[in-house]
């Protein structure tokens, strides 16, 4: 079964856009046979298929702010993420990889998204 990566849907901050970019770097790339994403808002509406996906798969959440929407919604749906990434904390370890804006995360944001991808790829996630 494919692993599920779920970013936070953040629309107000660059860190939310970075979370989304990191997800697409996994799901729309050479890793697409291994990783898939689902729409986070579906978990708000108790979508049966999405709930089943997060309870039966290895789930990675990527959140852009301390509200941790992705992580909280996965748990609300009955899932338990194997890894919960906070984008600002990843930046703290690579301070030069600073994103620009929500409209354009810039080169720094792209590098930060790649850092997140590497964290997920290097994670030992056997459930």
């Amino acid at each position: 079964m494919k692993k599920v990566v779920i970013p936070c849907s953040g629309i107000g901050k660059a860190f939310g856009a970075v979370a989304r970019e990191a997800t697409y770097l996994l799901t729309d790339s050479d890793h697409s046979n291994e990783y898939v994403t689902i729409c986070l808002p579906l978990l708000m509406t108790d979508d049966v298929e999405s709930k089943q996906r997060v309870t039966e798969s290895n789930v990675y959440t990527v959140d852009g702010c301390p509200k941790r929407c992705a992580s909280i919604l996965v748990r609300h749906a009955g899932g338990k993420p194997v890894m919960e990434i906070m984008t600002p904390k990843v930046l703290a370890a690579n301070k030069e990889h600073k994103p620009e804006t929500v409209l354009n995360i810039g080169d720094g944001g792209q590098l930060l998204a790649t850092d997140i991808v590497n964290l997920i790829l290097n994670h030992g996630d056997d459930k």
Binding site: C8, I11, L40, P41, K67, I72, L73, H76, L103
Partner: peptide
């Protein structure tokens, strides 16, 4: 939907609109 919403928030109606991340209704 996200791109169109950002266009309105930042360029077309920046002083007349606000937003919130949808999942915050549950997580917040």
């Amino acid at each position: 939907s996200r791109a169109a919403t950002l266009e309105v928030l930042h360029y077309l109606r920046p002083t007349e609109t606000v937003t919130i991340c949808l999942p915050l209704f549950l997580a917040g």
